[in-house]
Amino acid sequence: MGSMSNRLRKIYAVTVLFMAFSVGAVHAAQAQTTAQVPLSRLAQLQQRGYVRIGLSNEPPWTVIDADGRVGGVGPELTHAVFQRMGVPEMQGVLSTFGGLIPGLLADRSDAISSGLFIQPGRCQAVAFSEPDLCDREALLMLANGHSNPRSYHDLAKDHALQIGVPAGGSEEHAALAAGVPANRLVPISDGPSGMIMLLSGRIQVYSLPASSAQHLVDLWHEQKLTLVKVEDAPVMCAGIAFSPRAVALRDAYDHVLAQLKADGTYDRILLAHGFDPTLAREHTRKEFCAGKEVQ
């Protein structure tokens, strides 16, 4: 889920970045040789009849059931946009979170719709659509906890707290910026692991996007948990990621996305999954890529 990179481990991230760079370098060199493709990418997709969407299992953003069927707010919205663009079918390319961007660059997928947050670093590697799904950061803790933090600054003040953050996610930056020392931040690979660490007392607070946190609260419904929306953290927005060579396709996507936002389809899909449709309208790709929100 977005900057949240549920499944990303640190070593993993280094490898993935290294590979992404090598792939990118080769692609840059190859870009010239493949320039004479006659059909536009959109025309190719229309002809083929389906779009391949890279995604990882990040409920509630993306949901994959036991038979591998793809659902969740992100893919549903993406499917709606592509249908309007004349590409009727959607095929999910399931991978780990770390494999999403390399898979896109290696032409394993046509776009990523997995709640990938728009961040300056990622803007270098892929072409994002305008923001579609936005969320606030949340803090998850046991209801009977002695401390009751409401913000990252509260976390910085209470030296007894160990704070779980999604490995490689933006929560880590935000916490560090608020003065939480790095040795109190514990990288978490996925939601259930974070919950187990919270319940077993290895961490006292789990910081993650609010909708992901709510999903975990629902799964652990028998536990008494407190979910707090962070007061001093900015809203984060995800977008659909395209290959940097598919800017025209991205622009076509943005155009249709804007139509869906205008005609109410967008609101209907988001509300059905409990997402706030107003948030994305207040933000643009440009501001996230410039890094205004992260600092």
């Binding site: 549920n6 949901v63 036991a66 390319v93 494999g99 996925d190 259930p192």
Partner: peptide, 17 residues
């Protein structure tokens, strides 16, 4: 993107907690 046992187990965890 191959769904072997470990991957399936991990997906199951994320689905069900």
């Amino acid at each position: 993107s191959l769904s072997d046992i470990t991957f399936q187990a991990q997906q199951f965890r994320i689905r069900t907690g």
